[in-house]
Design a binder for these strands. Structure first.
Lengths: 187, 187
DNA sequence: TGTACATCAGTGAACGCGCGTTCACTGATGTAC
DNA sequence: TGTACATCAGTGAACGCGCGTTCACTGATGTAC
C-alpha cells in the first residue's frame, strides 16, 4: 500500500524531469526502486497513473494556496498569482498534470464550481464577491470573474511557454498582475 | 519542389487526424503518396517539418482573419473570436501547431509586435486604439489589451479542451465574448 | 544532333531504440484449524 | 504450537509495435561539348 504513494511521488519527480509526453512507466519504476511492472499492481495502466498524478498535483496546488493567509484581497491575489506562475514556470510538467491534462469527472464548470468542489476558485470567487460588496471589484458574476482571471493567467503562461514573450520573470509577473487588475478592479 | 508543398499540406491533414504527439513521418509520407524518406529531401528532420507546419498553420490563420472585413469594432471582435474558437475546437492540432508549439525566431512580444510582425495582433491593437479615441474602449496600452484578450481566449479554450466546462458551443462562445468585453469595453 | 556526365528527387531495406503490456513465476505474509 | 494453504506485492523475461533515421541505390532530368 505504501508503494502506491512512493510510485506516485516518484512519478511526479519523473514528470518534472522528463515532461508529460516523455513520462515512461519504466523510468517511474526505476526511480521508485521497483520493477516497471510493480506499477500495474497499484494502477490499472498508464492512463490511470496519469489521472492519479493529475489529482495528486492538484492537491498539492490546493495545499499551497491554503497556506496563503493574506486577508487583503489584492495582496491575496498577488500571492496566489506569484505561486501560480512559479508552479507553471518552475515545474511545468507538474503544472500540466494539474491543469492541462484532461480531467476525470469532477471540477467541471459550472456545476462543480458552484457546489464548491474547486476550493481555490471557490475561495477566489468568495473574496471577489466580498470585494464587490465593499466597492473594490467591478460588478459581474463573481464566479465568472474568477474563471476569467484563471483563464487569462493560464493564457499568458501558455504564451510565455511557447516563447512569445521576451520578458524577465518579474516583468512577466507584473504583466500578469496588470491583466488581472483589468478584469477585476473597479477603476 | 512541388512535393514540399504537398508534404506540408498532407502533414497538416495528418496533424488534424492524429494529433500533435502522434504525428509520424511515416504517416505523413503515406498520405503524400511518397516514401517517408522523401520528407528528408525537403526538411532537415522532424523538428524542422514541425516548425514549418507551425508557420504554415499560422499563415492560414492570418489569411482567415484577413477575410473578416467588418468595420465596426465589436462585430470584428465577434467574428475573429468565433473564427478562433472554430479553429481551436474543430482543428485542435492545427491550432496547437500555430499557437502552442514553441515558435522559431520572430513574433516575440514586445519587439516584433510593436514592429507589426504579427498582423492579427497588430490589426487588433490598431482597432482598439481607434476605439479608445472614439470613447468605446477603456484606457490602457492598446497592444497590451490585445495581448490580454488573446491570452484570455487561449486560456478559456485550454480550460474547455481539458474538459473543465460543461457548456454548449454557443454558451462557451458567449462566455468568451463576455470575457473579452470585460477586458475591452468602457462600461 | 548526339554522347557523356552530373545532379538530384525519391526509393526501400534495415538499424536500433524505447515503449506499454503479457505472462508465468517467486517468495513473503497472513489465516484457519 | 505447528502445519497447510491462500493471498498478494513484486519480479524478470519476453512480445510486438511504431518510431526517427542511416544508407546505398535508382532512374529521370538537365547540362556541356
Amino acid at each position: 500500500m505504501n508503494t502506491r504513494i512512493v510510485i506516485l511521488n516518484c512519478a511526479l519527480d519523473e514528470l518534472q524531469a522528463a515532461g508529460l509526453d516523455k513520462l515512461s512507466l519504466r523510468a517511474v519504476g526505476k526511480r521508485a526502486g521497483v520493477t516497471p511492472m510493480a506499477v500495474y499492481r497499484h494502477f490499472q495502466d498508464k492512463a490511470d497513473l496519469l489521472h492519479a498524478l493529475g489529482d495528486h498535483a492538484l492537491s498539492q496546488w490546493q495545499a499551497r494556496v491554503e497556506q496563503i493567509q493574506d486577508v487583503d484581497l489584492h495582496s491575496w491575489i498577488d500571492a496566489v498569482t506569484r505561486a501560480f506562475i512559479d508552479l507553471a514556470l518552475d515545474s511545468p510538467a507538474l503544472f500540466d498534470a494539474a491543469f492541462v491534462l484532461k480531467t476525470r469527472a469532477g471540477r467541471i464548470y459550472p456545476q462543480d464550481f458552484k457546489g464548491g468542489r474547486s476550493p481555490v476558485i471557490g475561495a477566489f470567487a468568495a473574496r471577489l464577491a466580498d470585494g464587490q460588496r465593499r466597492g473594490l471589484v467591478r460588478e459581474g458574476d463573481a464566479l465568472e470573474i474568477a474563471i476569467f482571471s484563471w483563464a487569462t493567467l493560464q493564457g499568458l503562461i501558455g504564451l510565455h511557454r511557447s516563447g512569445r514573450f521576451n520578458l524577465s520573470r518579474e516583468d512577466f509577473t507584473d504583466m500578469c498582475l496588470r491583466g488581472l487588475a483589468r478584469i477585476i478592479n473597479k477603476d
